[in-house]
Design a binder for these strands. Structure first.
Lengths: 216, 216
DNA sequence: GTCAGGCACTGACCAATGGTCATTTTGGCC
DNA sequence: GGCCAAAATGACCATTGGTCAGTGCCTGAC
């Protein structure tokens, strides 16, 4: 029986090693340009072996993304812990998520794909379930922040926390999308905008919209 | 010389015919799943011919997107024309864009790809320049709405119109992304949210944040 | 009328790449 | 040493975006 347990440990370790290789490659080239052959080379395995640990490329990417966002959650919690009010906590959730995506831009790309994928996605695999659950946790922090703000008076009391948490998170996605690609977008759009300030403007706007009392 | 002119007309017409075929296919399956062979079949041409009219698949998609957003601009202008105030005009810009993406969800997917593409994109082709210019026009309508609101008192005067127009537009992107995929997302996220109201909540929040005077 | 030149078009072909599976290797157990 | 199951392999396949040498029709000159 001890053999079975060791085998299971080795299996988990190998899976992690594959994810290590994929994560490093992904950080450089992104999920789209990630090549399964390259992952196999980097992990010193044959390509066929990858498919013993992951159903397909999507699930491998989901595994990478799930680990990344899993590492983010403690950071988010630490950053929220110092909040002076519920409204401040909500700000910190948004700021933390933005900082996380700046450090892991490829992860954000994966999130966009995941959100847009519609029915075409192999849900149900372990990696995807893990990813989904962690996204839910992040969202929950926004809900808690709003509820706290309604209790301490920093957030309007005539709104429902959960739908507004989703609104906060959704709108932040769009703003982050612009922020991550601001160099190329500012070249493309025939309008001279400083895209550096968009995130800050948005967080301020959200705070103003949520705020229980008037505030400059 | 008359021959050269007729040839040019025929060339434009054929290009439009290719775009017609691609647009119809795209509406069904999206840009990702669009197959160049299928476009060629639908246009009753060989695949090689497509590449005489478009540099690559990306540019063909950009051509479809540029036509779609070109058709949208008059609708946007009509909808904004009835606005009672600058703030109302800003709302209408957001509402119109949302309605447009609901009718042309695949176009929105293209926009996301375009925004995320970074350097990997063959800019400079005619289709892309046309697309970019029209996106700029839509953005300009948001700028004008904010300026009008600052003059009629419906929008705060301590903000810069252009950066805030970008903030409005960016955040709307994220909200629309969720709205377009709400069915699959609500199944995936381990939280029971009614995603139907997110767009309305967001537009209200934006109006509140922009508003010159306090309003419920 | 006819013939050369050129233009639009063709479709067989190529390269890249995600995924498969028959076969080989490994390692534990008797 | 022999046997078996699990793990791993890598040659192979199917799909698909893109290419290019070749075909044929139209035109304008003579």
């Amino acid at each position: 029986m001890a053999v079975a347990e060791r085998r299971e440990r080795e299996r988990v370790a190998r899976r992690e090693a594959i994810l290590d290789a994929a994560e490093e490659l992904t950080a450089n080239v992104g999920y789209e340009a990630l090549r399964m052959d390259a992952v196999a080379d980097a992990a010193e395995l044959s390509k066929g072996t990858l498919y013993l640990y992951f159903q397909n490329k999507q699930e491998l990417c989901a595994g990478v993304a799930a680990r990344l966002i899993g590492d983010f959650i403690p950071l988010l919690e630490a950053h929220v812990a110092d909040a002076r009010s519920g409204l401040d906590a909500a700000r910190r959730v948004l700021e933390s998520y933005c900082e996380f995506t700046r450090e892991n831009p490829q992860h954000f790309r994966f999130a966009l794909t995941w959100l847009s994928a519609g029915e075409k996605l192999d849900d149900g695999t372990e990696a995807f379930r893990s990813y989904q659950q962690r996204v839910g946790e992040v969202l929950q922090h926004a809900v808690v922040a709003i509820e706290r703000g309604q209790q301490d008076g920093s957030v309007r009391t005539d709104i429902e926390p959960l739908p507004h948490a989703v609104q906060l998170w959704s709108s932040m996605l769009g703003v982050i999308l612009i922020d991550l690609n601001k160099e190329s977008i500012s070249q493309r759009i025939p309008v001279p905008v400083d895209l550096d300030q968009v995130v800050d403007l948005h967080i301020d706007a959200m705070a103003r919209a949520l705020g229980g009392k008037e505030q400059a």
